[in-house]
Design a protein around this nucleic acid. Structure first.
Lengths: 205, 205
DNA sequence: GTCTATATTTGGATAGAC
DNA sequence: GTCTATCCAAATATAGAC
């Protein structure tokens, strides 16, 4: 059949082990912070010696890179599968709820994807690709809702970033800031339509 | 005279050296990030050996702590000396402009004060004191402008945090987000007065 | 593939002479 | 106060046997 090839059991096993290593890496990062990841501890956690990890990843940075790729892929799916609405305001609210939920659901993932706290780490083009695709998708979703003004988009990202950040930093596990999402989006929406009206006025004059 | 005592030239010299060390530490952090601070390099930078630093600070954490104290003190002065206005909206705008300017002026200081990126670092009560005083002052300034609703304050901090963070992360040295401050405050102000009106309606009914 | 042993670097911190 | 010498711990990464 087209695109199908013989199953390579060796390769499958190898991928499974890589995933097992990455899962353990996420666990470690969630416990002690991203920077706390050490190859010794990681190896012990998956039941092998530290040098054996090099059979699966070229370096510690390669592990961070793979984690970044997983996170970006997860975000892409999050953005693809979220509920949609025909109403622009509701669409804005659903989109932002989705974003903030994604961020607060796993603070370490948020940190890795959006805050770049690892000195010297830059994601490779391969790992970055789904991230770009995700951003393009969100941008398209917003455009569908009639949101194309760059300043409004910048303000939107600032609000989203700020809500997620405050929630994670100052009320982890709670909802002190996440509950403000709908209200904040209503505020932004009102503000945009008000400015759009004024702008039309100026144009017609 | 009251409160005046004999000058202690030894003590003065010591304080001067401590400040010199802290200045060098800020420089290092600005160049390679907060986490890059190493006692060896720091010592070389001020022209002494690494162990000599222990004559001035008990540990590396004590240096971070002193830096935190300096930053908090600077914020307090920033909040005290900012321009004021009798008009509530203008007051909101001036306050937020002040905050975002403080944050973007020195990203490393922002990181140390508001993001706590050093694993295991917690500021001591002495270093934290000016920070508390600064927060209380800002809170009072906002109350003077008629802003006391907790949800509105939370939304305000999220917006401030978000604007500063986006500016620092995505357009360092530019003004892509800082220029949105006045507009964002107008938006928040409109939203608050609208909600306040609605709330009054409900109460009177 | 996985291991043991080891190289190498780098860091914070201490001891003790001067 | 400042230095040299040193300790100790932890980290990434490599060599080479099995």
């Amino acid at each position: 059949m087209l695109g199908e090839t013989t199953r390579d059991r060796r390769q499958e096993r190898r991928e499974a082990t890589k995933n097992e290593i990455l899962e353990a890496a996420w666990d470690m990062a969630r416990e002690g912070g991203l920077a706390s990841l050490s190859l010794r501890d990681l190896a012990r956690r998956v039941g092998m010696s530290a040098p054996s990890l090099y059979g699966y990843f070229d370096s510690k940075m390669a592990i961070y890179d793979a984690m970044f790729g997983q996170g970006a892929q997860q975000y892409l799916e999050y953005a693809r599968n979220r509920p949609r609405s025909g109403d622009p305001l509701e669409e804005l609210q659903l989109g932002m709820r989705n974003f903030v939920a994604f961020c607060t659901e796993d603070p370490v993932r948020y940190q890795l994807l959006f805050q770049r706290p690892i000195p010297g780490f830059e994601p490779s083009p391969e790992s970055y690709a789904p991230s770009i695709e995700g951003l393009a998708l969100v941008r398209q979703q917003l455009a569908d809702a009639g949101l194309t003004d760059q300043k409004a988009l910048d303000l939107l990202t600032a609000i989203g970033n700020g809500l997620a950040d405050q929630q994670i930093s100052n009320d982890p596990g709670g909802d002190r800031w996440t509950r403000l999402v709908d209200d904040a989006m209503e505020m932004l929406f009102d503000h945009m339509t008000k400015k759009a009206t004024k702008a039309r006025g100026r144009t017609k004059k």
